[in-house]
Amino acid sequence: MLARIKEFLGMETKPEAKNPEIKEVASEEEVEKVAEEKPKPKIGYIHLSGCTGDVISLTENYDILAPLLTEMVDIVYGQTLVDRWDIPEMDIALIEGSVCLQDEHSLKELKEVREKAGLVVAFGSCASTGCFTRYSRGGQQAQPSHESFVPIADVVKVDLSMPGCPPSPEIIAKTVVAVLNGDMDYLQPMMDLVGYTEACGCDLQLKVVNQALCIGCGTCAMSCPTRAVGMTDGRPEVNGDRCVKCGICYIQCPRSWWPMERIKKDTGL
């Protein structure tokens, strides 16, 4: 996996990233600098069963969007973005949305993209955990038999997972810079998260509180995009009716995984 990212970004010849000290949210200058130094990766955007929120979040990086799209990457495939119907070879496929098992077109597109893309990124919680599409039970228009929506990792091999409902503009910017810099350390948690496909607010209880790990910090409640998490007597309390199963509360919890090295780098401590 690491080898593949490095290979397609031409990292193997220069394993030390030129710009390893990128901090905080990528600034315009940083992005332009990276743009000048690296070959432009070919990116495809594949829209399966999601709400388009993920790509909108990407566009909210106003300060870096223009150089990102014009100088840093080549968008080679994507509904509404590129006038092209056959799937070309690409370096990175960003896949938004879960995949419907009854929808043969989506399944076919997903599998073909997997073959043509160097890296497949589950972009947003629908692609990585299924998110709110997990609640589907079919019986609705436009196609009542479309009932089973699963994270794309259930069907194809995924390289990076970027959950979020939607992923924040900041994590998208940080990840773009990390990919272009070949900063594997930053991407490691996203490789690990590929396996986290069955997410639920109840993970806070099952994987943190039940495991004697919770310390009542409130990070989960702060992170939940739907405000499904409250804190009662210093422990998270999840309102299942509001939970969209995006997985963010557990992912942000300091007791699920702990990126000390990166934090030290980012804070200079």
């Binding site: 979040s57 919680s125 970027m162 959950p163 979020g164 409902c165 939607p166 992923p167 924040s168 503009p169 900041e170 994590i171 940080k174 948690p189 910090c217 409130g218 990070t219 702060m222 992170s223 939940c224 995009p225 995006c246 963010i248 992912i251 942000q252 919890c253 300091p254 702990w258 990126p259 990166r262 934090i263 980012d266 804070t267």
Partner: peptide
């Protein structure tokens, strides 16, 4: 620790 992790990896936390 929760705050710093969120700053380094703000997966689902927008504009905080």
């Amino acid at each position: 620790m929760g705050i710093r992790k969120m700053q380094s990896y703000p997966f689902g936390v927008r504009f905080v």
